[in-house]
Each structure stands twice: as structure tokens, then as C-alpha cells.
Simulated assay, not measured.
Amino acid sequence: MLRLMRLMLYNTGTRQGLVRELRLMQCYLMPDETALRELSEQVIEKLKRLTDAEFAGLEFPMN
């Protein structure tokens, strides 16, 4: 659920844009926010394995 929320929060509409926004967000994390950093890295790694077409086919529920 947290991963989905992260995707929805930082989604720019493109896979590459989302990765860029997640990387930018990581710059603002405090050193003790290791769980959030690890979660973000997991999401980024999964996004890297997707094609742009696969990403475009994802649905992000808003409820």
C-alpha cells in the first residue's frame, strides 16, 4: 500500500519522470529515514524493470 501511495504522490505521468521525482525526494530525506529510503529504492528498481508501455498500462486507484 505504501508503494502505491508513493507512486500516486510522485507520478508525473511517465516512468522516467516518476523515477526522477523519487530520486529528488530522496535528497530531502533525513539520515534516520532509512525505511523510506529503502522503500523508495525498491519502487525505483521495479520501475526500472518496466517498459514505458507497461507503465502506461498501470492504473493508480484514487480511492
Rank of each mutant, 00 (worst) to 15 (best):
P61W: 07
K48R: 15
K46A: 11
A56L: 07
A53H: 10
L9V: 09
L47K: 05
D52H: 04
E38H: 11
E45P: 00
R49A: 12
L29K: 11
M25C: 10
G57F: 00
V19K: 13
R6K: 15
Q42G: 14
D52E: 12
E59L: 10
M62Y: 08
K48G: 03
N63Y: 06
K48M: 07
L39V: 09
M25H: 15
D52A: 08
R3W: 03
E38C: 08
E41M: 07
G17P: 06
G13D: 05
L22P: 02
Q42W: 01
L29Y: 15
E59T: 09
L50R: 03
Y28F: 14
R6C: 07
M1K: 14
K46S: 10
L24W: 12
E54Q: 15
D52M: 05
R3E: 11
R6A: 14
R3H: 13
L39S: 15
P61G: 06
N11V: 03
L36N: 08
G17S: 09
L24Y: 13
L22T: 03
R15H: 03
G13A: 06
M1H: 13
V43C: 03
G13F: 01
F60Y: 06
V19F: 03
M8R: 14
S40T: 15
S40I: 11
D52S: 09
L36Q: 12
E21G: 02
L22Q: 01
S40A: 15
N11W: 01
D32A: 02
L58I: 09
L9D: 13
V43Y: 01
Q16N: 08
R20V: 01
R3Q: 11
L24F: 08
E45V: 03
Q26F: 02
I44M: 12
D32K: 02
N63P: 05
Y28G: 10
M8D: 06
P31S: 02
L4N: 11
A56C: 05
Q16K: 10
Y10D: 05
R49Y: 02
M25W: 12
Q16W: 01
E33W: 07
V19T: 12
L4S: 12
L36H: 10
K46D: 10
Q26K: 15
L22G: 00
T14Y: 02
R37L: 14
F55D: 00
Q42N: 11
V19P: 07
M30N: 11
L7E: 03
N63E: 10
T34M: 14
L50Q: 08
M25G: 01
D32F: 05
R6M: 14
A56Y: 00
A56Q: 11
L2G: 06
A56V: 04
R3G: 06
P61Y: 05
Q42M: 06
